[in-house]
Amino acid sequence: MTGYIIRRILFLIPTVLVISIIAFILMELPPGDFLTSYILQLESSGAQVSEAQIAALRARYGLDEPAYKRYFLWISGIVTRGDFGRSWNWNRPVVELIIERLPYTLVVSLVTMTFQYLVAIPIGIYSAVKRHSLFDYTFTTIGFLGLSVPSFILALILMFFAYTTFGTSIGGLFSAAYREAPWSFAKFVDLLKHIWIPMVVTGMSGSASLIRIMRGVMLDELGKDYIRTARSKGLRERVVIVKHAVRIAINPILSSVTWVLPQVISGGAITAIVLNLPTLGPLLLQSLITQDMFVAGGIILLLSTLTVIGSFISDLLLAWADPRITYD
């Protein structure tokens, strides 16, 4: 087991390395280098940019160097000094911008994931046990709808009804009164009042697929011989379902973290843009549109690394929960 964990950790390193190269390529993709747009921006705001200043900036970011050297400049700054570069738009270090928004991104993602599993596992089990019941049909239909209504449309519709019935905007994570306030119990309550909207909106489609998986696996397991054996031993139905069938059927759900996490982060990004949340999604969109590429590259690198670590944890969970997996 220890050997397995060490091997998986060693495997993380090349993965993150390749991801950093992809993030760098994405930064390089837009035509022209970012300095051109920066200088244009400066000049349009009336500032004079001298040749010497331009040359200094070019040298500092190694713009005349070949791409691989610029990559090393970028990545070594991140690894050794935690320096993700500087944002042209905000005129601040990228790290500061990201750190402001990272905690909210993590909180919203984790709350959404918890919501998905808390909703999906019981409903999936119950639908399988009471197959073809009204409950089963109701949730199959809701599940289909959940898969078909994109999160941003759901967010738009919710916002529309909130706006027309209550006359308030439901966007953001805090009411205006608490946005700048220091942390207090009242602010926490205010957060709870807001966070359920992105949670439901982003979690809807994920829960729908998780319910389908849970129901499917449970149905497979309930038809197997060991369940019949358990029943014929005279075990109570509750024990048969919870201790036998669910124990096995939960494994695919544990391994689903691998795709649920990227989905939550991906869907969360677009929901956050519609709902105007202080998370990384809106910052990413803004930086991409204004070609503030150090910000965009940093965010993509960070979000991808997060999902890689997430799937690493889910592998460990699965290895711990399913003794049938061998580790050589």
Partner: peptide
């Protein structure tokens, strides 16, 4: 595995924002 681990919508956003 690596492509799947990059969140889809941010990746799409980055790629399409890069179109001239």
């Amino acid at each position: 595995e690596i492509i799947l681990s990059i969140p889809q919508i941010p990746l799409w956003m980055a790629l399409s924002a890069a179109l001239p």
